[in-house]
């Protein structure tokens, strides 16, 4: 079925079309939300809201972009809103906190991996560290980097989602990587892992 056909069916409230849409884009949406939220339960929660918004606003979709681009936009905006609304409630650990208190990165070992507990703990600490470093990036750098890293999207696709020029996206990702490197180097020097 063409994209226009899917949207037409959604406008009519066709349940089968909605089910197909959810099955097609579920992984993509959850993964995008997870890249921004770093928590699978929160990511699934926000992803559900994303699909509800898609279903409700199908009548407003003009078809200027691909369905996936439109869904990505909703997923990114919803995730950022979720972060803004829940930042204070959650035990937010900033990157500076982690760097200033060496060896106290609080990660739980992945007991399901069946691997070496020492290595699991280290990976878990690295995960907390890299998430905090990504979260400390400016908003646009964070979105561009996350879409590129977690979804393997090309710069062109990211530029369509973020409604920016290709060169802006290139520059955003370049600066994001440089900033991440700087932050990780600070952490390395202070031996925070």
């Amino acid at each position: 079925m063409s994209e226009a056909g899917i949207i037409e069916k959604l406008r009519e409230g066709n349940e089968k079309a909605f089910s197909d849409l959810v099955n097609t884009y579920q992984k993509m949406v959850v993964n995008t939300c997870y890249g921004i939220l770093h928590n699978i339960e929160d990511a699934e929660d926000v992803a559900q809201d994303v699909f509800i918004e898609v279903f409700r606003s199908a009548s407003g979709f003009r078809g200027d972009s691909k369905i996936s681009t439109w869904i990505y936009r909703i997923a990114v905006n919803r995730s950022l809103n979720f972060l803004r609304n829940h930042k204070r409630r959650r035990g937010f650990q900033s990157f500076d906190d982690i760097v200033e208190t060496p060896k106290t990165v609080t990660g739980e070992a992945d007991t399901e991996s069946g691997g070496d507990p020492q290595s699991d703990m280290e990976n878990s600490q690295r995960s907390v560290l890299i998430h905090a470093a990504i979260d400390a990036l400016p908003k646009n750098q964070r979105i561009a980097f996350t879409l590129n890293k977690y979804e393997d999207l090309s710069y062109k696709e990211i530029s369509e989602i973020m409604e920016l020029s290709l060169s802006s996206v290139e520059s955003l990702i370049h600066r994001a990587k440089k900033n991440l490197q700087k932050k990780l180097y600070n952490c390395y020097k202070k031996k925070c892992i």
Binding site: Q26, V30, N31, Y34, Q48, R126, I130, Y150, Q181, L184
Partner: peptide
């Protein structure tokens, strides 16, 4: 090596498993 290990974490955690009850919950 430190950078490689840290960045590898991101690659490992991509594509979380699909929840089979996702559509039902939506």
């Amino acid at each position: 090596e430190y950078m490689r290990k840290t960045l590898k974490v991101l690659n490992q955690e991509r594509k979380p498993d699909v929840n089979p009850f996702f559509y039902t919950r939506v």
